[in-house]
Design a protein around this nucleic acid. Structure first.
Length: 419
RNA sequence: GUGGGUGUAGCUCAAUGGUCAGAGCACUGGACUGUGGCUCCAGGUGUUGGGGGUUCGAGUCCCCUCACUCACCCCA
């Protein structure tokens, strides 16, 4: 084979593509009801947009970005995530002048140069949502409510909502210091990665999956105890809203996000059904980011979902979506097959999905194909019908059948196009 | 970047180092001259991922390589 898709990227075609469409349609429906409007940002940005927001020492920036130099010598990066471009655009177009809150959602591909595995690809697709201008924790709860409705609409169950607060610029240094103090004396027993994390970002040690590190961090300080009073109150109110809305959640004080711009509320939607990559959606507050991009102080919160992972869950739950034609026209003889083509083009012009049998194949094989396609009706146009001026129709589900004059075909199916 | 697993027909998979590499699904035709699903019969398709080696003989054993895949790492 001469050509194949690049490592970590995938072609998407039926029947999977129908699951994709369903996921995207569910997001548009549900998010619209919550007042989120679609936002289409470019797929390429200045490399700086990502380096400064995601964080210079994060894995994404250090070793996962698709970065290249364009013909004018600029450093360009294919977006590895969706929030930074939206924030860049929000600031660039002064959208903060519009009445708050501004709520946006986006759908599209992201790119990270990683070793592919289950649920992890080099080109993957996210649906994200961002809400600007609201500090109140009510919006945090609304986002989770929206996520819950979205997953219900798709029929997905057994999802866990995990929440945490990682505090603000004010209270996080205290926590970081407390962590270092706690880990310092037994640092040599941690894995090499954790020893590196100790210097760079000790919060990440909490997220290590190595068993030894898990036990070593028993009794480690909890971030929630180091929140300043404002952050603590914010987090408490957030939880009370979740209770009010009857959204079940679990507190996960060890949940640490991989992007540096997060503040206060963070959350993840996880599943047990996806192997190692168990997060289907994740997000949090980034109250400083708009300012970092040169805008006015603007609190904000958002999340992103992985479409591939959601589709994988749908597939695993046995969900299949296979659309089928309304009409299948089987013809016998050359004269009739021309008439069949004319009827098909007319019905299609009215928006009715119509398939044609292969001219020259036996009637039996044409009907068999109609059955395989799960066509709702078959029209039979043969030499007898051409003589009598009437076509036969048959409904495959129950075998009922009849005949009608040629000129009644359109109205017959217009009346029956909906299931 | 590091480890493990797997590569055989369009798809899912068989084949102790030994004849011409086989099944099921799918596709077409027929049994049933123009009426689907069920059943039966018939029809053809392979650089066994690629390259090298061992052997009288390799899909099978060894080496290299490529691809896919799972996990670590990281994350959606």
């Amino acid at each position: 084979m001469k050509y194949s898709a690049l490592k970590g990227v995938h072609d998407i075609f039926p029947p999977d593509v129908y699951l994709w469409q369903d996921v995207e349609a569910a997001a548009r429906e549900v998010f619209s009801a919550y007042g989120f409007q679609e936002f289409r940002a470019p797929i390429i940005e200045s490399t700086d947009v990502f380096v400064r927001s995601i964080g210079e020492t994060t894995d994404i920036v250090e070793k996962e970005m698709y970065t290249f130099t364009d013909r004018a010598g600029r450093s360009i990066t294919l977006r590895p995530e969706g929030t930074a471009p939206v924030v860049r655009s929000y600031v660039e177009h002064h959208l903060y002048h519009l009445p708050a809150p501004q709520k946006f959602f986006y759908v599209g591909p992201m790119f990270r140069y990683e070793r592919p595995q289950a649920g992890r690809f080099r080109q993957f697709h996210q649906i994200g949502a961002e809400a600007f201008g609201i500090d109140e924790p009510r919006i945090d709860a609304e986002l989770l409510a929206m996520l819950r409705v979205f997953f219900e609409r798709l029929g997905l169950e057994e999802l866990n909502f995990e929440i945490n607060s990682i505090g603000c610029e004010g209270c996080r240094p205290n926590f970081r210091k407390a962590l270092r103090d706690f880990f310092s004396e037994k640092l040599d027993r941690f894995c090499p990665d954790c020893r590196r994390r100790y210097d760079q970002n000790p919060l990440r040690i909490l997220d290590c999956k190595v068993e030894a590190c898990r036990t070593l961090r028993d009794g480690a300080p909890r971030v929630t105890r180091f929140l300043c009073s404002a952050c603590a109150e914010h987090f408490g109110t957030f939880q009370s809203y979740l209770q009010l809305l009857a959204i079940p959640f679990t507190l996960n004080p060890e949940m640490v996000r991989g992007l540096d711009y997060y503040t206060r509320t963070t959350f993840e939607v996880t599943t047990k059904h996806l192997g190692a990559q168990n997060a289907v959606a994740a997000g949090g507050r980034y109250d400083r980011l708009v300012e970092d991009f040169g805008g006015p102080p603007t609190p904000a919160i958002g999340f992103a979902m992985g479409i591939e992972r959601i589709v994988a869950l749908l597939r695993e739950s046995g969900t299949t979506i296979i659309p089928s034609p309304v009409v299948f026209i089987a013809t016998v003889g050359e004269y009739a097959s021309k008439e069949g083509l004319a009827i098909a083009v007319r019905l299609r012009g009215r928006g009715i999905w119509t398939e044609l049998g292969y001219a020259g194949h036996s009637l039996k094989s044409q009907l068999r194909r109609a059955d395989r396609l799960s066509a709702r009706y078959v029209l039979i146009v043969g030499e007898d019908e051409m003589r009598s001026g009437k076509v036969q129709w048959k409904r495959l589900a129950d075998g009922s059948h009849g005949e009608m004059p040629f000129d009644e075909v359109d109205s017959f199916f217009m009346a029956r196009a909906e299931p």
